[in-house]
Amino acid sequence: MSGVTLYALTGAALVGTGFFGLIAARHLLRRVLAFNLIGSGLFVYLGAAGARGGEADPVPQALIITGIVVALSASALAVGLIVALARARGRAMLPEEDVGG
Rank of each mutant, 00 (worst) to 15 (best):
M1L: 13
S2E: 06
G3N: 09
G3L: 09
G3D: 09
L6Q: 03
Y7N: 13
Y7E: 11
A8M: 13
T10I: 09
A12C: 12
A12N: 06
G16T: 06
G18R: 01
F19N: 12
F20D: 07
L22T: 04
A25T: 03
R26Y: 08
R26E: 05
L28A: 02
L28Q: 01
L29T: 06
R30Y: 11
L33K: 03
A34C: 04
G39R: 08
F43E: 01
F43N: 00
G47T: 12
A49V: 13
A49I: 08
A49G: 12
A49W: 03
G50A: 10
A51D: 12
R52L: 12
R52E: 15
G54K: 07
G54F: 11
D57M: 02
P58C: 09
P60G: 12
Q61P: 01
I65S: 10
T66W: 14
T66Q: 15
G67L: 00
I68K: 08
I68D: 09
V69P: 00
V69S: 11
V69A: 14
V70Q: 08
V70H: 05
S73A: 15
S73E: 10
A78N: 02
V79A: 05
V79C: 03
G80I: 02
L81M: 14
L81I: 15
I82F: 05
V83P: 00
V83Q: 08
A84C: 06
A86F: 01
R89P: 14
G90Y: 06
A92F: 10
M93P: 01
M93G: 08
M93R: 07
L94K: 03
P95K: 07
D98Q: 13
D98N: 12
V99K: 14
V99S: 11
G100Y: 15
G100C: 13
